[in-house]
Simulated scan of single mutants.
Amino acid sequence: MLDFSKNYFELFDLPLGFTVDAKRLAERYRALQAVTHPDRFAVAAEDEKRLSLEASTQVNEAYRTLKDPLARAKYLLELHTGDPGTDSETSKDGAFLMEQMELRETLAEAQTSPNPRAAVATVLTHLAEQSVALDKELAGLFAAPSPASLDAARELVRKLQFLDKCRRDAEELDAAIEGHY
């Protein structure tokens, strides 16, 4: 049914790297789901049902991981180094951290600004631009993985984690502001 020893890139028949063809990823996901979905095994033996459920779960997890740039970067670090090692670490870039604090202050002040949704939108735009820039850097670092490039990638993943958390907070704030109008 499914070779559980394959990494997510092999499972989806994609080249190992940060840049992923989203269309091909979606096509492979649909094809794998068509083969592994538990509904196809509703009348099968218990072992086949269990394997189908495990395969479908792995396909779903692989798809979520490869679709999300932050999760994909962490997964690549794990494949290359054996440990993504980024969850408990913080960025070492002081200027970046100061910028993140300023963005957080802007979000805090947005609630009392004359146009709170515009303030949040400005933050979200800035975060999206930073994420795109970091994604481009990660693509280059993972294209030629070496100890130095993987260390640099690990630092960029830490930064992406900050951006992702700030983005989620900004989206929550935007939804709360929208609910008040």
Results as ranks from 00 to 15, higher is better:
Lys74Val: 08
Val59Thr: 06
Val43Leu: 04
Asp39Cys: 01
Glu99Ser: 07
Pro116Thr: 10
Glu129Trp: 00
Ala22Trp: 05
Asp21Arg: 00
Arg117Met: 13
Leu14Cys: 12
Gly85Lys: 12
Leu150Phe: 04
Pro114Asp: 04
Ala144His: 08
Pro69Glu: 14
Glu137Val: 11
Glu178Lys: 08
Arg158Ala: 10
Ala26Pro: 06
Asp135Trp: 06
Leu141Asp: 02
Leu163Glu: 06
Arg154Met: 00
Asp47Cys: 03
Ala110Thr: 09
Leu173Ala: 15
His180Leu: 10
Thr90Lys: 14
Asn115Leu: 02
Ala73Lys: 07
Phe142Cys: 04
Phe4His: 05
His126Ser: 11
Leu2Trp: 05
Pro38Val: 04
Ala148Asp: 10
Ser131Pro: 06
Arg167Phe: 03
Gly82Phe: 12
Lys159Glu: 14
Ala34Glu: 15
Arg40Asp: 03
Leu160Cys: 07
Asp93Ile: 12
Thr57Ala: 07
Gln58Lys: 01
Glu99Asp: 12
Phe12Gln: 04
Leu11Tyr: 04
Arg158Ser: 09
His180Asp: 14
Ala121Arg: 08
Ala31Glu: 12
Arg50Glu: 14
Ala62Gln: 07
Ser146Glu: 12
Leu51Tyr: 08
Thr122Trp: 02
Ala144Thr: 13
Lys165Gln: 13
Tyr75Ser: 02
Lys136Ser: 11
Glu178Pro: 00
Glu172Gly: 01
Ala176Asn: 03
Asn115Tyr: 03
Leu79Arg: 00
Pro145Met: 10
Ala148His: 11
Pro38Gln: 02
Asp87Ile: 04
Asp21Asn: 08
Asp68Val: 07
Leu163Asn: 12
Ser146Trp: 10
Ala62Thr: 09
Leu32Ile: 06
Glu78Asp: 13
Ile177Trp: 03
Leu127Ala: 03
Asp83His: 02
Cys166Lys: 07
Tyr8Ser: 10
Leu2His: 05
Ala108Gly: 10
Glu54Tyr: 02
